[in-house]
């Protein structure tokens, strides 16, 4: 690492996306959460959450799976290994900045 302050990941360093990432990182690795439950945990509108999830998905941090349960479409969201690592790096960078 070069001298000076570490860079903060711009994908995660935005209030709403940070909250989404924290919620997903709270799930044990390998677990997935449905879109409505995630929305409820975060108290976000569906449109807002979709927008932020798309950005996280584009960065490869989040995986979105669409499936069916008894003919009802269900959307599952989970943090990828890359996303989990990025969140750990981000948290570590924050702590480094404050010491």
């Amino acid at each position: 690492m070069t001298a000076g302050l570490p860079e903060l990941d711009p994908v995660i360093h935005a209030q709403a996306r940070l909250r989404v990432t924290v919620a997903l990182a709270a799930l044990p690795s390998g677990d997935r959460i449905t879109f409505p439950r995630l929305q409820e945990l975060l108290d976000m509108t569906a449109g807002n959450l979709s927008t932020h999830l798309r950005k996280l998905e584009d960065a490869g941090y989040v995986e979105i799976t669409k499936t069916h349960q008894r003919r009802t479409p269900v959307t599952y969201v989970e943090l990828t290994t890359k996303g989990r690592r990025a969140f750990e790096d981000y948290s570590a960078a924050l702590k480094e900045m404050l010491t």
């Binding site: 209030q15 709403a16 940070l18 709270a26 924050l94």
Partner: peptide, 20 residues
């Protein structure tokens, strides 16, 4: 709030622990 203003490192850490 869905406010997306820039966060200071301290605010970010506080947000992480409260959200968690």
């Amino acid at each position: 709030a869905e406010d997306d203003g820039p966060l200071s490192p301290a605010e970010s850490l506080a947000l992480i622990s409260s959200q968690r």
